[in-house]
Amino acid sequence: MAKWKKWIIENKAAVWLLVLAITLIWGYAWVTMKAALEYMGPFAFSSFRFGTGAVTLLLVVWIMKIGLPPKEYWKHLVIVGILQTAIVFLLVMYGLTFVDAGKSSVLLYSMPMFSSLLAVKFLGEKLTPAKLIGLTIGMIGLLTIMGWDIWIGQPAEVILGEVLIVIGALSWAVSNTYFRLHVQDLPKIQSSAFQMLFGSIAIIIASLFLESQPIVWNAELIYYILFTGVLASALCFTVWFIIMSRLDMVSATISTLLVPIFGLAFSSVLLGETMTIGVLTGSAMIIIGIIIATVRWKNPRVQ
């Protein structure tokens, strides 16, 4: 384990491989989240997903004998858990009942815009010209993917769902900043496990009051819970904390713009959602934006 961690720390290419891996998993997770709503309500699914993720991580913490976090970190882990796990996914899963999986992923990944602004304000990071240009192109790409129907011709419940998902994106951005300020020094598996535990408790409490849809248990639903709980939650959010510790906030969050591209592709193939010229054009703009924002340029003033 120590050699693996040292390799990640010293090899920046490894960090970008991790970025690619988690964005691919998160992209596919949108399909499983949407499909799971056929068998279970959004709040109950979030409870099972993050409950499974928390139990998985706590078992790893126990096996590795990492122990409990110091007492002074508990309140910070509660706040991160509520912001990143509870608020984000309660809003996202409810929004998914009205909004297509592909477009939902696009809306949530407006998060880099909010994260970049917060990083400049509270973390003292510089929004260099290259990063600003890359972020702008990426966000225009997101709007291109959304198309004009985000503004006109939509039922009220779809607009509500989209607004809730954007609020979830803002909550995730605040969580990223708060993590960097207060939790970054903890072991990443430990911080991921306990923030997810506290977030899961909040989701379960909300589910007891808000959920009314009956659960239809079958092998397909169990697969969705295990995939999103173990891989998309326990594994990916631990890796996400590692990435945020290795890259500056702006570069790390801009890289997640790959998620809606994968989400749209998987949704098109597996759910039959429409892949239009606007989607393809917007996806190309996102990739160009990521390259501009993250490649180191020779001129030191725009690195």
Rank of each mutant, 00 (worst) to 15 (best):
W4N: 09
K6T: 13
K6I: 12
I8L: 15
A13E: 10
A13S: 11
W16P: 15
I22Y: 08
T23E: 09
I25W: 05
G27D: 06
G27C: 06
W30C: 01
W30T: 04
K34R: 09
A35S: 09
A36N: 08
L37A: 00
F43I: 02
A54Q: 13
V55S: 06
L57G: 02
L58Y: 13
L58E: 14
W62V: 07
G67E: 07
L68F: 10
E72N: 09
E72V: 06
Y73R: 02
Y73F: 09
W74R: 10
K75C: 07
L77D: 01
V78I: 14
V78Y: 03
L90T: 08
L91A: 01
M93H: 11
D100S: 09
D100V: 02
D100N: 11
D100I: 06
A101I: 06
G102Q: 05
V106P: 03
L107Q: 00
P112D: 00
F114I: 00
S115N: 01
S116M: 00
L118S: 01
A119Q: 00
A119N: 03
G124I: 06
K126C: 07
L127R: 04
T128G: 14
T136W: 06
T136E: 13
M139K: 05
M139I: 07
I140L: 12
L143W: 14
W148F: 15
I150F: 13
G153D: 13
Q154Y: 08
Q154E: 12
E157V: 04
I159F: 02
L160E: 06
V163C: 01
L164W: 13
I165E: 00
I167S: 00
G168K: 05
S171K: 07
W172P: 11
A173T: 06
V174A: 08
Y178I: 06
R180F: 04
H182K: 13
H182F: 14
Q184R: 14
D185L: 10
D185W: 10
K188H: 14
S191L: 03
S192G: 13
Q195V: 01
M196N: 07
F198S: 01
A202S: 12
I203P: 07
A206N: 02
A206G: 09
A206M: 07
L208W: 06
F209S: 04
E211A: 07
S212T: 10
I215T: 12
I215P: 11
V216F: 09
A219P: 07
E220K: 08
L221F: 03
Y223M: 04
I225D: 00
L226D: 00
T228I: 08
G229S: 03
S233T: 11
L235F: 13
V239Q: 04
F241D: 01
L247N: 12
L247C: 10
L247T: 11
S251M: 12
T253S: 04
S255V: 11
S255N: 13
L257Q: 10
L258P: 11
V259S: 09
P260N: 01
P260D: 02
L271M: 02
T274R: 11
I277C: 10
G278S: 15
G278T: 03
T281F: 15
G282R: 11
I288N: 13
I288T: 12
R296E: 08
W297T: 05
K298A: 05
Q303L: 09
